[in-house]
């Protein structure tokens, strides 16, 4: 049981850090600001989740793992908000972006 937990911790932490590294590489490889923001969200979602999950598996079910869940909830609430605020600021200030393609559907019935 203890050995299984050890192996699981290794697996989760290493794969989480791997996703963080891929996101970091993406930050350098991507050609413009908007595509870089996708790479950054890679590290904030699955990278952070796997690292925190690895720590939680190591500590077991107690107040420490509850705090880890809090860290994750904060990251999940704040990272899309921060990313959206940033790209919205860049877009409204006219940073060069691809043209808009219209894919809206006509709304069924009256507007709510």
């Amino acid at each position: 049981m203890e050995a299984l937990r050890e192996v699981l911790t290794w697996l989760l932490l290493v794969s989480g850090v791997g996703f963080c590294l891929i996101g970091g590489i993406g930050m350098l490889r991507m050609p413009d600001f908007y595509t870089r923001s996708h790479a950054a969200s890679l590290t904030d979602t699955l990278g952070a989740t796997l690292v925190v999950a690895g720590l939680a598996v190591h500590s077991g079910l107690n107040l420490i793992s509850v705090k880890l869940v809090f860290v994750l909830v904060f990251l999940y609430l704040t990272s899309p908000t921060a990313a959206h605020a940033l790209v919205k600021a860049a877009y409204s200030k006219g940073l060069h972006a691809p043209d808009v393609e219209d894919a809206t559907k006509p709304r069924a019935g009256g507007a709510g």
Partner: peptide, 17 residues
Amino acid sequence: VILSPSLPIEPRILRVS
């Protein structure tokens, strides 16, 4: 996409409802 050497991205902006 990030790890493939050719970086096959096709960035676009869509307006969805």
